[in-house]
Amino acid sequence: MTLAPILAASFVVQLHVVTALALIPLTAIQFWRPKRGDWHRWIGWAWVVLMTVTAVSSFWIHGLRLVGPFSPIHALSLFTLANLYLGIRARRQNRIIAHRSHMIGIAAGWAVAGLFTLLPGRIMGQAVFGG
Rank of each mutant, 00 (worst) to 15 (best):
Y85I: 13
R41W: 08
G114Y: 00
N83C: 11
S71Y: 12
N94E: 14
Q93S: 11
N94P: 00
R33I: 07
A75Q: 11
A98T: 02
P34A: 13
H62C: 10
M103W: 08
A46N: 06
A108C: 06
Q14L: 03
Y85M: 10
F79R: 08
A113W: 01
I61H: 15
G130Q: 11
P25M: 02
Y85D: 08
F129N: 03
L23K: 03
W42G: 12
G114L: 00
F79G: 04
Y85E: 12
N83P: 04
M1G: 13
T54P: 06
N94D: 11
H62D: 14
H40V: 04
N94T: 07
R36I: 08
A107T: 00
R122M: 10
N83D: 14
R41I: 02
L119I: 06
S57N: 09
H99Q: 09
L81D: 13
A98C: 00
Q14T: 02
A107K: 00
L50S: 09
A111H: 03
I96L: 12
A82L: 14
A90E: 00
R92V: 09
G131V: 08
G109Q: 02
S77M: 01
F31Y: 10
G131F: 08
S101M: 09
K35R: 08
G131D: 11
D38K: 12
R89P: 00
N94Q: 14
A107M: 03
R33L: 09
A98L: 06
R65L: 11
A46M: 15
V67A: 15
T2R: 15
V18F: 10
L3S: 10
P5E: 00
S58H: 09
I43L: 14
R65G: 12
L7F: 05
G114I: 00
G130C: 07
L115Y: 07
A108H: 02
T27G: 07
G105M: 02
H74L: 15
R41Y: 07
H62G: 06
W45G: 09
R65Y: 03
M124F: 02
L50P: 10
V17K: 00
L76A: 15
A8H: 09
G125S: 05
A46T: 14
P120E: 02
F11Y: 07
F79L: 12
F59G: 15
G131N: 06
M124H: 00
V13F: 15
R92D: 04
L115F: 12
M51E: 15
F59K: 07
P5N: 01
M103K: 04
G114Q: 00
A9D: 13
V48T: 13
F11H: 08
N83Q: 10
A108Q: 01
A98D: 13
M1D: 06
V12K: 07
W110N: 11
G44F: 06
F11E: 14
W32E: 03
G63S: 14
A98R: 05
R65D: 09
I96N: 05
I123K: 08
L119S: 06
F31W: 11
I24M: 05
T27N: 03
R89A: 13
L64M: 15
A4Y: 10
A55W: 10
L84V: 02
V128D: 04
S10D: 12
